[in-house]
Design a protein around this nucleic acid. Structure first.
Ligand SMILES: [Mn+2]
Ligand SMILES: [Mn+2]
Ligand SMILES: [Zn+2]
Ligand SMILES: [Zn+2]
Lengths: 139, 139
DNA sequence: TCCTACGATGGACTTTGTCTAAGTCAAGTG
DNA sequence: CACTTGACTTAGACAAAGTCCATCGTAGGA
């Protein structure tokens, strides 16, 4: 069953075949798919679904707070259904594998007042980079 | 005098008018220009310089370790001549202003072993977001 | 001064994403 | 159920950022 789909029900969200398929292919743990990856998986279930609809639907899920956008590289944005547990990301520099991580401590607290330049700082995004076990083994 | 240009001399770097102009317009403190911004400033001094050359030159400066790429949003990459002092970035969510910041503590140490999934973690990138003083005043 | 390998150029091409006009349909009403 | 309507979907044009390539030009050494 799609947990993401369940969360999207009962929010006045008009249900369509396209939206259901997008929610289903995006569901899971450590899932960080690009819009194109979502589209190609959606096409397997609903061949006529368009790219524009995938973009629109992902954008709405983000607006609803049920999906978060992740930008770990300079390529395509990735979409993450794990929206209710704040977390950061650990990325393999070789193969691009992405894991959700929960650092101890609050990175916001590590930014001293005299390094804030008068800004009201509200958010911080952390990306760890390294080499995953299988890439290390393959070296 | 261009500090960046000085650093680039004596590295076997073939000097051309184009490379000199790119190094000069990119020099300074808290400088985070896009390739297009570098190009349009370079054109003021050397009208026939091409986009491809600006991209090539910036890419080489990055390879030499004298410039770092910064990706604070999903728009264009930004180029930062402050390559010798490791730092992170504080970005205004309204106007895009970027400041170099130096958090206390090591964010790498905040990632427990049981959150590393067997990765060899070598690097971390932190982006703080907030509202700058002049945007707050304008609100 | 001459050579030549390296750098510069413009344009085609790719990737990622946005926008629009026109067609389709989910769901509330009676 | 049929009707209605505004929200949703679609294909394709368009745009921004960046890469690639064939060709031309030149920095700097012989
Ligand atoms: Mn995630
Ligand atoms: Mn910087
Ligand atoms: Zn890997
Ligand atoms: Zn601002």
């Amino acid at each position: 069953m799609s947990d993401l789909l369940e969360r999207l029900r009962g929010r006045g969200w008009r249900m369509t075949a396209q939206r259901r398929v997008v929610a289903e292919v995006l569901d899971g743990e450590h899932v960080h798919l690009t819009a194109d990856e979502v589209h190609s998986r959606a096409v397997d279930r609903l061949p006529e679904i368009s790219r524009a609809t995938v973009y629109n639907t992902l954008g709405e899920m983000v607006s609803l707070g049920e999906v978060v956008e992740v930008s770990t590289d300079r390529r395509a944005k990735r979409y993450d259904p794990n929206a209710h547990r704040p977390h950061h990301h650990l990325v393999c520099a070789r193969c691009g594998a992405i894991r959700d991580v929960h650092p101890s401590g609050d990175p916001l607290a590590d930014l001293p007042a005299d390094e804030r330049f008068g800004f009201t700082v509200s958010d911080v995004e952390v990306t760890y980079r390294g080499v995953c076990p299988s890439c290390a083994a393959a070296a």
